[in-house]
Amino acid sequence: MWDQPTPQPPSAPVSQPTPEALPPVPVPTAPIPIIDQIRVTEKKKRSRSWDEQNRATAFRGIPPEVQAQVKAVAKTLDVTVSEVARAFLEFSLESLRRGDLRLSSSFSQGKMMLYSNAAWGQSAAWSERPAGTLPPAPKKKNAKAVQALELEKPWRRPMVSYRHLPAGVLENIEELREQHSVPVGEVVSLLLRYALAAYEDGRLVLHPQPRRAAHLDIVS
């Protein structure tokens, strides 16, 4: 019933059929399938800028406790984890630019490690143990301890992804990674830790924007 093209002998006239011959179809251009006569909604083309603004960036090797702390801050402020990560990364990168935060890398335990001038940075808690250099596991260990040890292996740490990271932040992270020849996860971990410490001692204050419009702003 949808005006399928009807097979026509090659000699058939293309001109208008006589009124009697008109099939009871409403659309004059009979042989064209109906769908070809209507404009159909196209899939949206994502603009590059949209993609850039919204792309999730996945990082490997962020210690679970750092991830958890970022998550906890997000929960307290009722904002997304990505928003906190973004603010933290921006704060730390700004601190780097101002010279408040200085990084140095050194070859340690068989791999490049990143250090900061901040006191907490000296603790090795956040740095990663190189593969194969785990201390021999204690004889009696409970499941939790095993899991914790397993998580010490950076490649076993769950990936974390943050959305809406500005291109500038990602570029800065990439520059640092190159400059210090360390994995991206290590750069991000250090930046997040620095900001977390600043947040905890009150130097860094976050100003959450209301996540949802409380009312419908229909007319601007």
Binding site: P26, V27, I34, Q37, I38, R39, V40, T41, E42
Partner: peptide, 17 residues
Amino acid sequence: TEMLIMLQQSKGWHGSL
């Protein structure tokens, strides 16, 4: 569908199906 085609072809409708 006839209505959509009519709106599109002679009433300047810009939408789509």
